[in-house]
Design a binder for these strands. Sequence first.
DNA 1: TCTCCCTGTGAGAGCGCTCTCAGCCAGCAT
DNA 2: ATGCTGGCTGAGAGCGCTCTCACAGGGAGA
Lengths: 327, 327
Amino acid sequence: MSRPTLEKVAARAGVSRATVSRVVNGSTTVAEHIRVAVQRAVEELGYVPNQAARSLVTQRADSIALVFSEPPVRVFSDDPTFAGIIRGVSTEADAADKQVVLMLAGSSRGHERVERYTTSGHVDGVIVASMHGADPLPAALARRGIPVVCSGRPLTGSSLPYVDIDNVGGAESAVRHLLESGRRRIATIAGPPDMVAGIDRLTGYRNALRDSGRRSIIAIGDFTRDSGFEGMTQLLEDDPGLDAVFAASDMMALGALQALRRAGRRVPDDVAVIGYDDVPAAPFADPPLTTVRQPTMRMGRELARLLLHPGESSVILPTELVVRESA
Amino acid sequence: MSRPTLEKVAARAGVSRATVSRVVNGSTTVAEHIRVAVQRAVEELGYVPNQAARSLVTQRADSIALVFSEPPVRVFSDDPTFAGIIRGVSTEADAADKQVVLMLAGSSRGHERVERYTTSGHVDGVIVASMHGADPLPAALARRGIPVVCSGRPLTGSSLPYVDIDNVGGAESAVRHLLESGRRRIATIAGPPDMVAGIDRLTGYRNALRDSGRRSIIAIGDFTRDSGFEGMTQLLEDDPGLDAVFAASDMMALGALQALRRAGRRVPDDVAVIGYDDVPAAPFADPPLTTVRQPTMRMGRELARLLLHPGESSVILPTELVVRESA
DNA sequence: TCTCCCTGTGAGAGCGCTCTCAGCCAGCAT
DNA sequence: ATGCTGGCTGAGAGCGCTCTCACAGGGAGA
């Protein structure tokens, strides 16, 4: 009834445990006819090595953790970033024959759980996908001696390897597009100032405007649709003459679109709108949303590669402006 | 440098391994002052039990696998189903202090990998989230003696426990809504006939029409946007007089919307449209899409509960019609 | 023929933990 | 005093595997 052990296979094949182990692990120093005999025994018994026993001696787990250090709601709401990362990490891990353990570490209790789990030898390394650059988790894990890579530049001043997307460049390209299409008063609805994405996209906006000598018009949101609506409303009050807005997330852009419609402004005729993220809903917005697309899947792959091949250096990935009708 | 072991803690606290183990695992038969001493030693050394060693003797892994038996593209494209399931499973697993191991088993190589991984004692049970009812994976795992629950009624005739969503009822409610708002020629763009969701939603459509004595007008799609566009185009050719369409997925509905627009039909004035899934893009469609929402997170929770408490019986969850402007 | 090496195999020592079982020392009844 | 509990603790076996090391056997070189 219970699963066969190495011992059982060895007995059946008439060899020692060591030899079976050699065959199972693909050692070359085994005579051909013995190898065949062992493999048949493995087959017949349906033998699968006990991973716990193996880990115990090898000190490896052959799996990596992918930790989302965010409330789960955020992770899987409308943001395609996480989905892309998951796919990328999975792809790369598969290729290296590693398993991916997905963990949600939203609560502080979650933090602790993740720390316990990853230090218990269950995984060989951890990818922390956190949007808050000041998240203490990565550093805490590193202190424990666990290999860690971060998605997004850590704000904590730690020197952990990371993969980030060129938020500054992405925002710059969006604003430049607005400038090039003749817009003169370009506002932004920025993201929260405690997130790298929020900070960097605002920097990009400022850079692009500074280069062209125009002044900035700024509202602060939190990446949600509602905050986009409010931000836009306020922006319209502050400067009724604005003719373009760059929202630091598509959800905020969608909210802005709604606020503009309510205020009777036509998009893109009166006001051009650009978002960020290229969420699935973006092409279906009214009008279809021009936005900045991020290579999220590639990000996942790079994260896994960085974890699997330590020593390679941090990576910054480029973005792509997807021009639709809103700008 | 290396992680402290039970032995080290025992030495520091001046007791035996067994006693430390008792304290760590919360046994009551330990004198108060010793318990305190041990806990201090654990604290000071930063001791975390080695899970491999523990699993080896307890034969438990304290984690469960959540397997997506689909190509990864599908899993994380625009379908909120999987995201909801992940959240639900995670929530419930957390509560039971179990870890969730996420696995993508798209390829046949993936199938094999999952089988190896789960039989190697790495997990205590498996949740298979597959949209193809005839997926051989769940049965294969069950044969191996691993506890399995399926998301979606298995089409293989196996008697595995499952959690499903009332696809038939959901489709019926959509079509009834169309009927009640006075529509007379109601078409459907059905899903693929090898998926439970495809089959059941078509059944629901037929049921509702049969009850009211109307005939069915059917096109077959594959849940994608493009197939929705094509399906709608064909439907319009087959029966130019149709005044409503029920698409078995939102993505197909979105495609249908586009086809209708191109054909110069107004929605909902000329043709009413209802989708299925309530994807994030649905509220932003033009016009906002009326659709059938599924309790995906609850589904995840039920899946986990079923796995964690064997013996409870399979569950079918109700859907909810979300009325927006397209119907 | 003897030694040397080289290939292939087996014996055995743990990896870090849990859990059974025996043992110890009160404290109480006899 | 002696025996008997009954509550705590420690000794030790063993979970299933890997990996080092010793060793057997045979071909080549001396």
